[in-house]
């Protein structure tokens, strides 16, 4: 083989159009998309007041913060921190449990193949959309207004927010369930309730369980910050110590949180892989 000269290139381009030079429309279309994205990104960054000068200045400040974080100290608050961490775990656990239990009936109601009435399942889906559209921190803030400061507000916030997500996923899992089993139960004279219990439930239960475990894992992470708005847990101390620039205390709290979260991650993954063997869908994993 040898590198072709210009006449050979031209001949080949004529013989096999599009192979050597891409059609100009396609080429410029792609370039326009890339350039448009780039311009949008730069404009947005500028609009939000981002700049390299501020970045450098801020990084310097972060360096100072980092140096003030060592050595970490609990300043006599050790047991308060442990209790708050316990609250965080309790919030994640009960919030996920409540949401999982509430989502099972809601999931069946929202599934097209179980409830034929389009009004019910459309209406339910929209309510779930509304719940999901609002971040759990907003719900936490609202529940603090309703039931007062403390972990109870956090539990309700997690439960409500997760019900919005889990019920939708359950409904989709139920809709995706294999129809042959349902037909079998129906053929044997089973009622609608029998179909749900005998044919659909055993198929989707592992998916439910796996989702719930994964959400417990994710909720442990989000429960660490609900305290920022007063809804219980370690987040209250974390936000407070940052506000008063007590950086070595901040470091201590973070060093408490990280292994706890890692442990929950590990347990959840262990149970999901060993006991269930079903991974949650991509939509859940990117949370």
């Amino acid at each position: 083989m040898s590198r072709p000269d210009s006449t050979r290139i031209a001949a080949l381009a004529a013989r096999y159009p599009g192979t050597i030079y891409a059609p100009p429309g396609q080429l410029w279309g792609r370039r326009a998309v890339v350039a448009g994205f780039f311009v949008a990104f730069l404009w947005a960054s500028d609009h939000l007041g981002m700049s390299f000068a501020r970045l450098l200045q801020g990084l310097q400040d972060l360096g100072i913060v980092a140096s003030m974080m060592v050595p970490p100290t609990s300043a006599g608050f050790f047991w308060d921190y442990v209790h708050a961490l316990g609250e965080t775990l309790a919030m994640a656990f009960l919030g996920t449990l409540l949401a999982s239990l509430a989502s099972i009936p809601l999931g069946f109601l929202g599934a097209r193949n179980v409830v034929a009435n389009p009004v019910i399942h459309f209406g339910l889906r929209r309510v779930l959309d509304v719940i999901r559209g609002v971040d759990s921190l907003v719900w936490a803030l609202i529940f603090v207004s309703v039931v007062g400061l403390g972990p109870f507000a956090g539990i309700l916030a997690i439960a409500l927010n997760d019900t919005g997500v889990l019920a939708k996923m359950y409904a989709e899992a139920i809709e995706g369930a294999d129809r042959k089993a349902s037909e079998g139960v129906a053929a044997a004279g089973g009622s609608k309730a029998d179909i749900a219990r005998l044919a659909i439930f055993p198929q989707v239960f592992p998916v439910f369980l796996s989702n719930s475990l994964y959400f417990f894992e994710a909720n442990t992470r989000s429960a660490t910050i609900l305290g920022v708005v007063g809804a219980g847990g370690i987040g209250f101390f974390l936000a407070d110590r940052i506000r008063v620039n007590a950086w070595s205390d901040v470091c201590f709290i973070i060093l408490l949180i990280l292994p706890t979260v890692a442990l929950i991650d590990y347990l959840s993954r262990f149970l999901r892989e060993r006991a269930i063997g079903v991974e949650p869908p991509a939509e859940a994993l990117s949370r």
């Binding site: 590198r3 290139i9 080949l12 192979t19 050597i20």
Partner: peptide, 22 residues
């Protein structure tokens, strides 16, 4: 570059596969 692409097309032509290049 076009010269590289042309070389690839020539190689495909030798193997009777140039029609399917895209």
């Amino acid at each position: 570059p076009p010269a590289e692409r042309a070389m690839a097309v020539e190689a495909l032509e030798r193997l009777d596969m140039a029609e399917r290049a895209l």
